[in-house]
Design a protein around this nucleic acid. Structure first.
Lengths: 212, 212
DNA sequence: ACGCAGCTTGCACCAAGTGCAAACTTGCAC
DNA sequence: GTGCAAGTTTGCACTTGGTGCAAGCTGCGT
């Protein structure tokens, strides 16, 4: 590690300049506007112009930030999963991967974030939107694969590595889905505890096998 | 099993009327034309009009069959996964699910189909296309969940069911990916044997757990 | 205060996708 | 085979999505 520059994984943190703050604010405004429209109406009953107007930017600026409304909505899921990755990378390198995963998943607690994640599961019924959510998970898988590669013994089979990551992300997504079906978008302390339980139990199954 | 007719995978077979044959042919022509364009050029360097013209139909007819070029390309993956589902449903109901899965995955052998599946993995580097592939796997997951529900003990936890299916599809997709990275689009007897080995080994890990 | 770099915006343009109604095919009954 | 009903294809018109470009605005360092 390096002592003169921030060595780990915070790219844009020191001195968030005015420009960066503005950009982040604009991005947020757009994403939230998109989510808002989605909350009260179906996809395709509103246009990009509507969203841009609601966010207080021009249509062109919308497309500077997101390539579509779907992408804007998916950004919430992406943010969440990125947080998980950061938590995962923060775990000690000699900890068993699945244990790290379990902890990383439980660590990301911010109820506000989870509430939005739950909402996106609700809204994802539309296949047009679902595609983008799936892609967010897929990108997450790629990143996790990189992390996991360094945690497993260096002679680990590639197939083992990929299958493991695929199983983890696939089943965790399933756990979120089951959680949402049970609790809806109401995120309380109990429902969060439930979620943690679901994720724990899912990872356990991955670790010890699905032998009913 | 059945002895009078080829028992496996035909749903709409009895009396494929002229209309149905025509429709199927048109659909094939369009999907193949789309794949052909993709083989020799990047996505977005050709238009729907190009594909429609190559398939010998009007632009409007293209959209009667597929909602986009991406969807047309994804139809190959979809067909493949549908075949797997049919094989899966054909397994006896009292067989352990994971064993059924293992057999169903190995049964779908048609080298031609697998070659195209491998190709789509190659072409799926484009995220625009990847989204649709992911969705095909997701739909497949839903169908598998229904099948699995009837195979597992009736008091099985929903979480267990969903996590199992998520793990299976997630890791099998990973297996296909590893397979493609190793062999490319050249589908030989050996590479097919390799694929079967990968899928077997993946399912085994799901069954007995990922304990490195 | 000045200038540079980065962001936003309007404009023009092409391609995606859809509704509609007219033409054309196929299936079926007589 | 004649003719009709139902299903399919096509052209046309129209809205929206998405991008390149050039001009204008804003934050930043000197």
């Amino acid at each position: 590690m390096n002592s003169t520059a921030p060595p780990t994984q915070q790219l844009p943190d020191p001195q968030p300049s005015r420009r960066e703050l503005n950009k982040a604010a604009t991005r947020d405004a757009i994403a939230n506007a998109a989510l808002d429209f989605l909350r009260r109406s179906e996809l395709n009953t509103f246009t990009v112009d509507d969203v841009a107007a609601a966010a207080g930017v021009s249509r062109r600026t919308f497309f500077n930030y997101f390539s579509s409304v779907e992408a804007a909505v998916a950004s919430f899921t992406q943010n969440y999963l990125d947080q998980v990755i950061v938590e995962l990378e923060a775990r000690p390198a000699d900890e068993p991967v699945l244990e790290s995963a379990q902890i990383a998943l439980s660590a990301v607690g911010s109820a506000r974030n989870l509430a939005i994640l739950a909402e996106t599961f609700a809204l994802t019924q539309d296949p047009q939107l679902g595609r983008f959510q799936l892609q967010a998970w897929e990108e997450c898988s790629l990143k996790i694969t990189d992390v996991a590669r360094h945690r497993l013994p260096p002679d680990t089979d590639e197939l083992y590595l990929y299958a493991l990551v695929g199983a983890v992300t696939g089943s965790c997504r399933a756990a979120f889905q089951v959680w949402f079906r049970k609790h809806g978008t109401a995120v309380t302390d109990e429902s969060l505890a439930d979620l943690r339980g679901f994720l724990d139990s899912t990872i356990s199954h991955i670790r010890t096998g699905f032998t009913h």
